[in-house]
């Protein structure tokens, strides 16, 4: 059983922003919204500068899901966090709660009020029929239904951004770490989204609190 995850290898990310552009192009993302962003930490500090691409991490204990007053979020069997734009009321609570700044709102309402929330779908569309125009209009392409992985990861030129089943990604990453040396802990954001091993064990034992 697949558990879809994103992983950004900060040793490889060159801050080209290709993933951002690819995502915007693939899904024809509304003006003013970018579902993915590249963040550079320690910018300009020699030897410490790291870049990474972040979008919705499809969290195990998704804060957006926990705070949504109308319960528009759902999770697929593959661990992808999706939402139903028809039911979204644009309250912005997911935007407050998300650690990664994934949910964004077009300012379409009167007086700049929030429209329907837009976020990364792991290229898995929404509740509409897979590959339909209605789905594309609201959520963009449904690549998973075509047997493809997210566009941002698949076109990453340095293969820093990986997407897909967590175990497959872990295998790839382990091979890399073995080759280049290091501890393999360079997965910024991973623990926040998917929890460390201990947190995960507690969750499966005790349930959410």
């Amino acid at each position: 059983m697949a558990r879809m995850k994103f992983l950004c290898d900060t040793e490889r990310c060159i801050e080209c922003n290709g993933c951002v552009t690819a995502c915007k192009n693939e899904h024809e993302v509304p003006w003013g919204i970018q579902r993915r962003r590249v963040v550079t930490i320690n910018d300009g500090v020699v030897g410490q500068e790291k870049s990474m691409s972040v979008a919705c991490m499809h969290c195990s204990d998704a804060p957006c899901m926990a705070v949504c007053p109308v319960d528009v979020f759902y999770r697929t069997e593959d661990g992808v966090v999706l939402h139903d734009k028809d039911a979204c009321i644009g309250c912005g609570y997911c935007f407050y709660a998300c650690p990664f700044g994934a949910p964004q709102f077009p300012q379409t309402g009167t007086f700049g009020q929030r429209g329907k929330m837009d976020k990364c779908t792991f290229c898995a569309g929404g509740p509409e029929a897979d590959g339909s125009d209605a789905e594309f209009e609201k959520y963009g392409k449904n690549r998973l239904a075509e047997g493809k992985l997210p566009m941002c990861a698949e076109m990453c030129s340095t293969k820093a951004l990986l997407g897909g089943d967590g175990t497959a990604l872990a295998d790839i990453f382990r091979e890399r770490v073995v080759r280049r040396g290091g501890s393999g802990a360079e997965m910024i954001g991973w623990n926040t989204a998917y929890g460390s091993g201990e947190q995960k064990r507690q969750q499966t034992r005790g349930g959410d609190k």
Binding site: R37, P63, F100, I188
Partner: peptide, 23 residues
């Protein structure tokens, strides 16, 4: 605050921990 090539949509953090507190 971190560097972001594009204008950041909201703020310039990689991970905002305040969201968890708010939740």
């Amino acid at each position: 605050a971190q560097s972001i090539t594009f204008t950041a949509p909201a703020d310039r953090m990689l991970i905002q921990s305040e969201g968890q507190t708010w939740r």
